[in-house]
Simulated assay, not measured.
Amino acid sequence: MCSPVSIFVSANPGAHRFRDLRPRQHPTAYREPAVAFAIVLLTTALVIVVALLAAAGAGKLARMDGATYPAALTHAATTFATVITLVATVTATLTALLS
């Protein structure tokens, strides 16, 4: 004869197997500062790349317009500083609004 088999399944069938693992699980709260730091680092890198591209474009346009190399470099530096300042202003405004 076969052993009796229950046809009823409990509401949470895996709970009895994983009950002893609950106290040993590590909290994930310690990962949040690292994720925030990574987001800040990647955003900063993206802003710098966009500012450098805008500066290169401004320098190239100034040079195509007939400006000398020092004048084109001045235009590029001004554009780079303007983009960085704009991003800092938008960040400060959003921080004030979202806090």
Rank of each mutant, 00 (worst) to 15 (best):
M1I: 05
C2M: 11
S3Y: 11
P4A: 12
S6K: 07
F8T: 14
F8P: 01
V9H: 00
N12V: 13
N12Y: 03
N12Q: 13
N12M: 08
G14Q: 08
R19C: 08
D20G: 02
L21E: 08
P23V: 09
Q25F: 15
A29G: 03
Y30K: 04
Y30G: 01
R31F: 14
P33A: 03
A34S: 06
V35I: 15
A36Y: 03
F37Q: 13
F37W: 04
F37G: 04
T43K: 12
L46W: 12
V47N: 02
V49Y: 11
V50Q: 05
V50H: 03
A51L: 08
L53R: 10
A54L: 12
A55I: 01
A56V: 12
G57A: 11
G57Y: 03
A58D: 09
M64F: 09
M64A: 14
D65H: 09
D65A: 15
A67N: 08
A67S: 15
T68V: 06
L73F: 10
T74Q: 04
H75V: 14
F80G: 00
T82H: 10
L86Y: 13
V87C: 08
V87E: 05
V87I: 06
V90I: 15
L94K: 11
T95W: 08
L97H: 12
L98A: 09
L98C: 10
